[in-house]
Each structure stands twice: as structure tokens, then as C-alpha cells.
């Protein structure tokens, strides 16, 4: 129990610190690294709450898939003459040492928590994926459908706002700001 409380507070502090550094960072790649650590810390908080499945999803989907995609896109967009110089800038220890330390704290905590048999939940039992599935497609099935419509709305909006202007109509729109 104590191990759990300890893990929760330290992971929470790491999450707050990493988020603060992410939103104040001037270098986008730097900020994204901190943001990634913040998501990992959130995953650890979920883990101490007895939600290992959500913690795993947080790591796989947010930290793993979405943010790494972000990083890749950002690195690829910057291809150009100064790209190699900028890339050398990115691999300097100054850039990754901060997020690295925070991530190391999280790793140590995870090892500590596992060694002390934590993750059984702060007061609650651990929730298995099967229970989540039963809840989602039982009482909350309307919620799942609504979430799908939410994604549809986001998709259509992103499609419209992000669409490349057709060259013909662009010349017509020159008058606009």
C-alpha cells in the first residue's frame, strides 16, 4: 500500500514537471520528448490505480504511436540544407539528458513497484481487459458509438481544414488576406 502511494506521488510529480517543461520548451523536439515522458508518467499513475490495461494503452498508443509519429514527421519536414546541422543539435546531451533522467526515475519506480507487488490498486482491485470490454460493450455501448461519431467529426474537420488548395481556385482567392 505504502509502495503504491509512494509510486503515485513520485510519478505524479514527474508528470507535472515533464508537462511544465514541455509547454515551456522552445525547441519543438525537446518539448515533445518531455511530453512523451509526461505520458509515461501518467501511465504509471494509471498502473498504481489498478488499471494496468489503460496504462499499457497509454504507453502503446499515446507515447508509442502518436508522439513518435509526431517526432518523425517533425524531423522529416525539416529536411534541407541545414538539416544535418540541426540533427546534430538534437543528439547533444543537453537535449535528451532532462527527459532521460525523468524517464530513468519512472523506470526505477516501475521496478520498485513490481518488486513490492504494487499495481494491485490503491484500494481497488486490478481491472482486467475483459472487464473493460464487458463494460464498454455492455452499459456503455452508446458511449462507444458516440465516440466513433466524435472521431468522424474530427476526421471531416481535419480533412477540410488541412486540404491543399487547388491551384486554379488559389489564383481566384488572391484578394483575400
Amino acid at each position: 500500500m505504502l509502495a503504491n502511494t509512494f509510486t503515485f506521488y513520485v510519478a505524479g510529480l514527474v508528470a507535472v514537471a515533464a508537462t511544465a517543461l514541455a509547454i515551456t520548451g522552445r525547441n519543438a523536439v525537446h518539448a515533445l520528448l518531455y511530453f512523451n515522458v509526461s505520458l509515461l508518467a501518467t501511465a504509471l499513475v494509471f498502473f498504481t490505480f489498478g488499471a494496468p490495461f489503460i496504462a499499457a494503452l497509454e504507453v502503446i498508443i499515446y507515447a508509442g504511436a502518436i508522439l513518435v509519429l509526431f517526432l518523425f514527421v517533425m524531423m522529416m519536414l525539416n529536411l534541407g540544407s541545414q538539416a544535418s546541422e540541426r540533427e546534430r543539435e538534437w543528439v547533444r546531451p543537453r537535449v535528451w539528458i532532462g527527459p532521460g533522467i525523468l524517464a530513468a526515475i519512472l523506470l526505477a519506480q516501475l521496478a520498485f513497484a513490481l518488486a513490492h507487488g504494487a499495481g494491485q490498486g490503491a484500494g481497488q482491485a486490478s481491472i482486467a481487459p475483459k472487464q473493460i470490454a464487458l463494460a464498454l460493450f455492455g452499459p456503455y455501448v452508446v458511449g462507444v458509438e458516440l465516440a466513433s461519431m466524435l472521431l468522424l467529426a474530427g476526421l471531416i474537420g481535419a480533412f477540410h481544414l488541412g486540404r491543399r488548395e487547388a491551384p486554379a481556385s488559389k489564383s481566384l482567392e488572391k484578394g483575400d488576406a
Binding site: 458516440l146 465516440a147 461519431m149 466524435l150 467529426a153 474537420g157 481535419a158 481544414l161
Partner: peptide, 14 residues
């Protein structure tokens, strides 16, 4: 919350 978010996300684009 879901209803509100569907509304908000649609409104950003509208």
C-alpha cells in the same frame, strides 16, 4: 461529455 465533445469538435471546423 461525449455529446459536448462531438459538438465542440464539429464547431472548431465549422
Amino acid at each position: 461529455f461525449l455529446g459536448l465533445e462531438i459538438l465542440s469538435v464539429s464547431l472548431y471546423a465549422l
